[in-house]
């Protein structure tokens, strides 16, 4: 018997994706890979514009019209999602197999519909009837189910809250509503797109705790996208670091934090104000997706760059239990 890592419930494998813009084709993702293990909270961290939100959109099948997938695969369990019809993605994946928590709670809820209407919608969209109880504690009705959901996200006055409109809630409360919405159809997987960025610091902390507890209680597997390594350290089990559409390093959070391997990860961690007395910064700027650097996209800014780095992207290599890094320094030969 071998001690294999737990099987991935969701796997993005070498996904390359471009969006056709008026100025040309933008290579948003370049062989990006994320492996979400069952029951784990997986942080995807990177600067804004590195493609982390696009990665989530690709998984959910809600990419902008002019985007095209150039290669790679997305698998939910054994099943490839790229081959599914738009109807099947709506019926079986979005909201059902995979819940989604959006970035900006102030913009994500429809201002002219009551909360209950909006929480009811994903349930109705996946074939639940108003008198379906989804769990024994729901009292055998969808409304009961909603009330127990709002209690699970610790929203006070759940009964009244259902009858109110989004603008009658604070930002933190709205994010709780959206978390409840994501959990409505009891998905096993949740994707969270910077769900605390729009909130103030104290509220952020409460929401992070809530997400952590919910993920543990309900045995959820979660991808948590953020630009903040501090959040990753608090919340996540594993992390994947992205730079300009490429996934440069991944592994258990503690290991990556303690001994970052990829030069970009090191610099990114050095940037974090909690780690360093003053902000360190990375010289240069994030490249345009329209004309990304060849090879490893970080090489023009990399202090340890070699000649071969610009030739071809390095392959991912194992550098320890569950750790991978895509860098020639660790033998990731350019392909």
């Amino acid at each position: 018997m071998t001690l294999d890592p737990p099987p991935a419930v969701l796997e993005v494998e070498e996904l390359s994706l471009a969006i056709d813009t008026d100025e040309g084709r933008a290579g948003i993702l370049d062989r990006a890979s994320v492996k979400l293990a069952a029951g784990s909270i997986h942080g995807v961290v990177g600067e804004s514009g590195c493609g982390k939100s696009t990665l989530l959109k690709a998984i959910l099948g809600v990419l902008p019209k002019r985007s095209r997938i150039l290669g790679g695969d997305i698998r939910l369990g054994q099943r490839s999602l790229l081959g599914l019809s738009p109807e099947a993605m709506q019926r079986e994946v979005r909201g059902r197999a995979i819940g989604f928590i959006p970035q900006d709670p102030f913009q994500a809820l429809n201002p002219v519909f009551r909360v209950d209407t909006q929480l009811m919608e994903p349930l109705a969209a996946h074939g639940f009837r108003p008198d379906d109880g989804l769990a024994p504690e729901d009292g055998g009705s969808m409304r009961g189910h909603l009330v127990s959901l709002l209690k699970a996200v610790q929203l006070p006055d759940a009964e009244q809250a259902l009858r109110r409109y989004p603008h009658q809630f604070s930002g933190g409360q709205r994010q709780r509503l959206l978390i409840a919405a994501a959990l409505a159809c009891a998905p096993r997987i949740v994707l969270a797109d910077e769900p605390t960025t729009a909130l103030d610091v104290t509220t952020q902390l409460q929401i992070l705790k809530l997400l952590h507890n919910l993920a543990r209680q309900r045995r959820l597997s979660m991808i948590f996208v953020t630009h903040d390594f501090g959040v990753v350290a608090q919340l996540c089990d594993e992390v994947t670091v992205m730079y300009a559409g490429q996934t440069v390093e991944s592994g258990p959070v503690r290991d990556v934090l303690d001994s970052p391997r990829h030069p970009y990860t090191r610099l990114l961690l050095a940037c974090h104000p909690a780690r360093q007395g003053e902000l360190a910064g990375i010289p240069g700027s994030v490249p345009s997706a329209l004309q990304p650097p060849s090879g490893c996209r970080f090489h023009p800014r990399c202090p340890q760059a070699r000649l071969q780095c610009g030739a071809a992207p390095p392959s991912r290599v194992q550098v320890g239990a569950g750790r991978e890094v895509a860098c020639v320094l660790y033998g990731g030969a350019a392909e």
Partner: peptide, 28 residues
């Protein structure tokens, strides 16, 4: 609007998004 993108990502049916959620906001 963001809430349309959210509705899609949250698995609402396309027809419901257009004829209920979007139209109601536009009709206002």
């Amino acid at each position: 609007k963001d809430f349309v993108g959210y509705a899609e990502a949250a698995g609402y049916r396309r027809s419901r998004i257009i004829w209920v959620y979007v139209l109601r906001n536009s009709v206002v």
